Computed example of a mutant assay.
Amino acid sequence: MKHTLEEKRNIVRQIKRGRPLSSLCKALHLDRHMVRNWLLRYEKYGDQGLRIRTPKYHFNTQEKERIIWEHTKKRIPLQELSLRYDVDRSTIKSW
């Protein structure tokens, strides 16, 4: 399900005002990873981070291996890597 920019803003505002992410996600039937990503993208890019993403970049094998290495060896969380490289967590997991 796609969410409008205004819906995302509203959800992020509620979290920023102190509403727990988990209770908000439960009440609205939203995936907490998706909402956390909205929050992180908002904190990093502002409103632009909540807008539709730019066309996907295609990672080559070496880039994928580097990201996997960062996750497995350096123990960088998928959420952080997702934000850093602008790639979905599920994509990283599938690699």
Rank of each mutant, 00 (worst) to 15 (best):
E7A: 09
E7V: 07
K8W: 06
K8V: 01
R9E: 04
I11M: 04
V12P: 01
R13P: 01
Q14F: 10
R17L: 15
R17E: 15
G18N: 04
G18H: 08
G18I: 05
P20W: 04
L21C: 04
L21G: 00
S23Q: 08
S23N: 02
L24Q: 01
C25A: 02
C25I: 02
K26M: 02
K26T: 02
A27G: 02
L28M: 11
L28A: 04
L30D: 00
L30W: 00
D31W: 10
H33R: 14
M34L: 15
N37S: 14
L39Q: 09
L40Y: 07
L40K: 07
R41Y: 09
Y42N: 02
E43M: 11
E43T: 05
K44H: 12
Y45M: 14
G46Y: 13
Q48K: 15
Q48V: 15
L50F: 05
I52K: 11
I52L: 10
R53P: 03
R53D: 03
R53S: 10
P55F: 06
P55Q: 06
P55L: 07
K56E: 08
H58Q: 12
H58V: 12
N60V: 07
N60D: 15
Q62E: 15
K64G: 02
E65H: 12
R66I: 08
I67L: 11
I68A: 06
I68T: 08
W69V: 01
K73W: 13
K74A: 11
R75Y: 13
R75A: 11
I76E: 06
P77K: 15
L78N: 11
L78D: 06
Q79V: 13
L81W: 12
S82L: 05
R84P: 02
Y85E: 04
D86K: 14
D88P: 13
D88N: 13
R89N: 07
S90T: 06
S94V: 00
W95K: 10
W95H: 08
W95F: 11
